[in-house]
């Protein structure tokens, strides 16, 4: 398994990288490379040029600022995993990160790359939907912010222009009584999800669900927002009846395909079961006992 030949550039700044992308429309951006390089080895991807972002300094930050958790394009999964901030305040992100691939891959893989690759089997897209995150796209004319619901545009397709770089991911800082959880069914460590469910919610003072986001992994051509499930729970007490109802909506609304991980009926059921479990866990965490 040997990649085809390509030209290689490792610019030292984002403007340089964008200039290269602009003049080489067939170029591919390389960040962690843990998806792209295997595709190149199988020659399923044969980019004429690789623009490697790894030499750009200052892109590996994970910090809170202005009510957002901001994560730079080159922050590695393992850095999220090791971040006390993420572990303590963003349990959904923490859960998700730990379920990505395997520990060695996570030393190299990036959150931004996980989103920009827009593989419906990737774990972070659903989590970002649940968080109602946004991403910063940097291009020739500067930065623009894209809401996560507008970012994913189908299988391996995003709102990024060919000369734009996903430079930062922004996750809203949690309000009081927030909780989140990611439940992923995988056949073994390193596998993509048979199905995954990301839930982020907060409770009001009376214990009702005030706001909730639910994202679904690998049960559609892109990560899906379980909108009916969210609507069903918003403003309700998180009791079994409502959780079951919301989970049933997720089961009905997801669009899985049959593959080696299971048939359509199995995956739909899995979405229901995992949705229930993820909501229960998120509620428990919001109540401070997760």
């Amino acid at each position: 398994m040997i990649p085809a030949q390509f030209q290689y550039a490792a610019p030292a700044s984002i403007p340089d990288a964008i200039a290269l992308l602009k003049s080489n429309p067939d170029a591919k951006i390389l960040s962690g490379g843990q998806s792209l390089i295997p595709l190149m080895k199988f020659r399923l991807a044969q980019p004429a040029m690789i623009v490697d972002l790894n030499n750009i300094g200052g892109l590996d930050y994970i910090r809170e600022q202005g009510g957002w958790l901001k994560i730079g394009a080159l922050a590695r999964e393992s850095e999220l995993e090791d971040s006390a901030l993420v572990r303590e305040k963003y349990p959904l992100l923490y859960d998700t990160t730990l379920s990505v691939a395997d520990p060695i891959v996570r030393n190299r893989a990036t959150l931004a790359g996980n989103l920009a690759h827009a593989d419906p089997a990737n774990d972070h897209p659903a989590t970002m939907l649940a968080y109602r995150a946004q991403v910063v796209a940097t291009g020739t004319s500067g930065n623009r912010t894209i809401a996560i619901d507008d970012f994913f545009q189908g299988l391996f397709a995003t709102a990024l222009a060919s000369d734009e770089i996903l430079s930062e991911v922004q996750i809203p800082a949690p309000v009081a009584r927030s909780g989140g959880a990611y439940f992923k069914m995988e056949r073994k460590v390193g596998d993509f999800a048979t199905a995954g469910v990301a839930v982020q919610l907060n409770l009001d003072a009376s214990g009702k669900i005030e706001q909730i986001g639910i994202g679904l992994t690998n049960v559609g051509l892109q990560a899906l927002r379980a909108k009916r499930s969210e609507d069903a729970l918003r403003g309700e007490m998180p009791d079994a009846k409502w959780i079951e109802r919301a989970a049933m909506f997720a089961q009905e609304d997801c669009e899985p395909n049959a593959d080696l991980r299971g048939g359509v009926e199995y995956k739909r059921n899995l979405v229901r079961v995992l949705t229930m479990r993820a909501i229960e866990k998120a509620v428990a965490r919001a109540r401070g006992n997760g």
């Binding site: 490379g33 843990q34 490697d52 520990p103 060695i104």
Partner: peptide, 18 residues
């Protein structure tokens, strides 16, 4: 797996130029 600047990485999923 090798250590790159002390961090374990899969050296078949990295280019030498990197």
């Amino acid at each position: 797996t090798v250590l790159v600047d002390g961090v374990p990485m899969k050296s078949c999923t990295m280019f030498a130029v990197q």
